[in-house]
Write a protein that binds this DNA or RNA. Sequence first.
DNA 1: ATTCAGTTTGG
DNA 2: CCAAAC
DNA 3: GAAT
Length: 871
Amino acid sequence: MNPEDNKSTTNDQPSSLLHINHMNGKSFKTETEQQPSSTSTTSTTTNEMNEYAFEPRISSQLSCSSLTAGLDEMGIFSSQDSDILLMDDFETGFLKRKVNDITEEEVVTESHDHNTIGQQPPRKKISTQPPSSIKTLPTEIKLSSFSSQKINKNVRKPKTIYKIVVPKKNSNTTGNSKHHQTKSKKGQASSNLRDIQLPNLAISKNEREFSNEENSLQIKAKRGRKKNTTGKDQEIIPLDSNGIFSNLRILFIQNNIGTVRLNLMKEKVKAKGGMVVDTFDTSVTHVVTELPGKNVHKVLGLLDNKSLEGIHVLEPNWVSTSIMYDKLAKTERYEVPLYKPTSPNESQSSTSLAEKTHENMNSGESESQSSHKSYHALKHFKPEKKKQDISLSPIREQSLSPSPIFKSDLEFNTPSYSRTFSSSSNSNYPLSTMDRNKNLKDPLTKLFKDEEKPTDLLSEMIQEARNLTEAGFYSDEGEYSDRMIVEESSDSEEDMKKVYSTLLEHDEKKGHEDSSETALSKKSQENQKYDSFSCMHKHTYGEVEINPNKLIIEKLQILLDHYQRMRDEWRTLSYRKAVSALKKYNKPVSSYKEAIEIPGIGDRIATKIQEIIDTGNLRRVESISKSDEVIKKFSAIHGVGSKAALKWYALGYRTFDDILKNVKLTHAQKVGIECFDDLQERIPRDEVTEISKVVEDAAHSTDPKLQLFTTGSYRRGNPTCGDIDILITRNDSDGKSHSGVLPKIIENLHNRNFITHDLTHTQEDDISGKYMGICRLSGGKYRRLDLFTVPYGELGAALLSFTGNDIFNRSIRLLARKKKMKLNQHGLYKNIARGSGGVSLNEGKLIAQRTEQEIFDALGVPWRPPNERSC
DNA sequence: ATTCAGTTTGG
DNA sequence: CCAAAC
DNA sequence: GAAT
Ligand SMILES: O=c1ccn([C@H]2C[C@H](O)[C@@H](COP(=O)(O)OP(=O)(O)OP(=O)(O)O)O2)c(=O)[nH]1
Ligand SMILES: [Mg+2]
């Protein structure tokens, strides 16, 4: 792992090739590049603007318009009958069973042999996770591993239409009508609500508790975390020890439950005292799933259902309903029968509610549940078949009477609410205008203390109620109002069959061709093979207005942003690809058929496109509830991601004041809030040029031989940039290097009062440094600044990496992976062996890092100048 | 059914 | 180890 | 959510 190793080899190479010019004032041209000749020609060109347009991120600013309606899918509710529940206690019996009996994998984790990943010498250790750690567990566990389940769910989620009926409540009640929290600005003693104190609901300060989700589950490949569990299981302290879910350990099995809904549900459960776990073990008190009962044990890796005895296996609506009434719903109605009487003749198992309600569980025998071990739960598991018997879930309107509190809060569009989020007015954020020097710590620290004080359950409930209201559960009037919502997966079984059969055909056909046509030239085969990678094609930045598919793009972008906030990683990726494909498709898409032909656009999105074409609108967009608006606002804060935003939302916070008062913020989040308004804006290109000069100046005062490159969107030629990304290096042929300059440059910039806030300092690693902070030209706005220092020899890889865009990087990296190579900011490595989960098992051999060209060539990707990398 | 990039820093 | 960021 |  020494840096030296790799580096030395290539390093000596002349750097001469690189001619870097770098930012010259405005003129700038993206040309740059080091590139050896050949391709250079193309590069210099300015962008052809032809391509269609669209300004990135624009949409993010849009808010979802009026939504009104529908229930948001984020909402926790979904179908089904809303029956009543009375609840109670019941289950306390199940509580606490001791957990630990084994956490499996403690193991291996870091043996040394592991490989460091890629060569990155100086980097810190890498924990490589060996493949699954199934290891020691008793054989049975193996079953859990994945493959065992063969269930094939061929069918995706059927198109379900949920009909929601809500009683309109006439209001009120609970005297506190005030609910809408007028949380006035800080300081105010707000609400009376608070007066009503519920018993202790202290919030634990330990925030980590929340995270215990997924402790295990390694299956999830890289992006997900790997489990930990090593050793101790951390104590989980419920957020609200008196919450309705307190003392319960609930395992959610994700399959059909939309991840969006699922995540919100989990947050709510946690906010109300429950523990959400990902591993099944005997301490689990409730399992929530839409799977047919007979399959549940498989997902959990259990041999049979016996181990589930004594544990409630419930439909998701149990959770929703409980939240809705803020009381634990009786479980009976939501129990999922574990032994399905249904005949084996396939195609019957449905998860539909109606069906379930009819079934009785046969309690076959039950008894021993021997296992104490914990097993992995599969996260993405789908039922064998899901047929949908009923498209509409039965709705029983029974007079339910929600808890008083719930009812009382019907009005939601209170002025205070809307005012709070009015965009951009600075006035709302006092901090931003305050004296920077002191405000940061003073008020904030004070606020922190407040955090300790118990949160008010009542206000939380009110928030919840408001949320529901907003979500469209209540009509203004008093009676029931039904709303139909097309849920995310809206494919009917038939549609699915169609899809699958076409896929099959396709495959067959393909297979044929391949086998029959061996005659293709290798090259063309290669092209074909990798043609689907977006990095293989030019993607230039375009203006939105010009794009013939502007409307479609905007709508999809709204959904994209929404899914991103909801932390639905993969769906987000798909939407990004679809939007990207659409941006570069320069003629108007006029039909489903045309849309689905576009790579990256599949059935579901094509269907949405058709709807937009037909109606100019997309119901799915309209159905995003207002709650999303709040989450969107929170996530817009630098340092706040969807996890924090969802959690805060679940806790009932709706405004910045709420979080300032009640939440322990990280340093970055405080800064993010302070500079919130300015940071929401994109930076005009010319200003980036100007800022780059300041940094260059500071760098040169440290060492005149440093070379700087403004990368990111600036290098790609965008007219506006989200931040300023500057890469710094130094030709080390004279024996000196860039090492250690970063702190000096930063200090210099601080002294000039240019850098106003630090967000992240590089850790000691003098070979490569990374800094993130906020700067401001005098009289200007706050701007995010990122500085990176890299070894000269890695310049090409670093430029490629930091120029992006992110989609381009992911694409080209995926392509590298497919070729058994690995591309990162240090270089391109070949002969990478990967274990399960995609982890590199070896460092591979470094084959390119000095110039971008070298890397493109090694990958077989045609040269793409920066302006063609805006995928 | 599986996969979806690869990494760094703060807490 | 996770969340958030690039 | 799409491609494989
Ligand atoms: O998930 C990511 C995010 C960014 N990058 C790289 C590519 C990107 O171009 C560069 C700078 O990141 P930044 O977030 O600044 O994106 P940008 O492309 O510069 O766009 P923006 O105009 O929003 O700054 O870092 C990645 O590789 N992966
Ligand atoms: Mg940038």
